[in-house]
Amino acid sequence: MAVTAEKAIQTPVKKVSQKTLRRSFLEWFYGNLTCFSQEHMQTFGYMCAMLPVIEELYDSKEEQKEAMQTYRAFFNTEPQIGTVVVGMTVGMEEAKANGEPLDGEAVNAIRAGLMGPLAGIGDSLIVGTLIPILLGVSLGMSTGGSPLGAIFYIVVWNLIAIFGMRFLFSLGYKLGGRAVEILVGEKANAVREAVTMIGTIVIGGVSASWIHVKTALTIVNGKVTILDLQKTLDNIYPGLLTAGFVILCWWLMTKKNLSPVIVMLLLVVVAFLGCLVGFFNPGLKY
């Protein structure tokens, strides 16, 4: 009888509702760059995502303030893949509210330890692979000025982002630390390598289809053309100048850490000087 009475007065288990989980995800999805600055990066966006969870798990304002102190720490990662960290901390905060031996330092240690590796994975998969693939397909659909390419990119990218991020959020919440193994384990590495290879092939195809660098340089002796440089290059390797310029841009951005804007300005200078000396200008001959 005493045991039954003891069970009856036990504190009920606190559980984050589906409504709050949905609100937390949407706060991160739409506001991960809230009040973005070089000092805080995604810190305030993270706090906005955790606020509805904290409000539901803790009753008093003092407890809520104390819990929110955890998320004042600096945070920055790739927003799409990094969604799994937000889901994990929601699960950790739920466990903490139910008396699990977790504190703010433990939560921040996990956040700080994951944001760097997940940022690298996200940048390579999302920014370096998925987006170029979608843009390559969109460019092909935009031939002749068709708006289908732009519509395709907007619709497909947003669908992938919404459902992909929602899946990662739920995965982090349900699996906790095991979600990280799914993202960075051996099988995940094999998938990333395969996707990266596909992205490289697509980028190469886009470069060959949409970038055309040709020279108009010819050497003429009277009425006899001694050298037509473009024809000579085409006999050796068709598209050699195009491949050279693409590799040059890649080298400047990856090896010399130049921004895309600087690289574009350099290309403008090269184009101007090339036309000035007759390398690109068909009106000038030597």
Rank of each mutant, 00 (worst) to 15 (best):
E6H: 12
E6T: 12
K7A: 00
Q10T: 12
Q10W: 01
Q10F: 05
P12H: 02
V13H: 07
K14V: 04
K19R: 09
R22C: 02
F29T: 07
Y30D: 05
L33G: 00
L33V: 14
Q38T: 07
F44I: 12
F44C: 08
Y46K: 08
M47I: 02
A49G: 13
M50F: 02
P52M: 02
V53Y: 09
I54T: 15
E55G: 01
L57M: 12
Y58H: 14
E63A: 05
Q64C: 00
K65H: 04
K65S: 10
M68Q: 08
T70W: 02
F75E: 04
N76I: 09
T77V: 13
E78K: 06
Q80D: 02
I81Y: 14
G87S: 01
G87A: 01
M88R: 10
T89W: 06
G91I: 03
M92V: 08
E100D: 13
L102V: 04
G104L: 09
A106F: 02
N108V: 15
N108M: 15
A109S: 08
I110K: 11
L114T: 12
M115D: 12
M115K: 11
G116A: 14
G116V: 14
G116T: 06
G116S: 14
L118R: 03
L118E: 06
A119C: 02
D123S: 07
L125P: 13
L125M: 14
I126Y: 12
I131C: 06
P132A: 04
L135G: 01
V137G: 01
S138K: 09
S142W: 00
G144S: 03
S146A: 05
S146F: 10
P147H: 02
Y153I: 05
Y153K: 04
Y153A: 14
I154C: 11
V156M: 10
W157F: 15
I160H: 00
A161D: 05
A161L: 03
A161F: 00
I162V: 13
F163G: 00
G164W: 09
M165Q: 15
S170D: 10
G172Q: 03
Y173A: 07
Y173L: 00
K174Y: 04
R178Q: 13
V180S: 00
E181V: 13
K187A: 13
K187R: 11
N189E: 12
A190M: 06
R192K: 14
R192D: 01
R192P: 06
E193C: 03
A194D: 01
I198T: 14
V202S: 10
I203K: 07
G205M: 12
G205C: 14
V206T: 15
V213I: 15
T218P: 00
K223M: 08
K231T: 11
T232K: 02
I236N: 04
Y237P: 07
P238A: 05
G239H: 09
G239V: 11
L240R: 10
T242Q: 06
G244Y: 08
F245K: 09
F245P: 11
L252E: 03
K256L: 07
K256C: 09
N257F: 11
S259Y: 10
V263H: 13
A271Q: 06
A271T: 13
A271D: 07
L273P: 09
G274N: 04
G278T: 11
F280D: 05
N281K: 04
P282R: 04
L284Q: 07
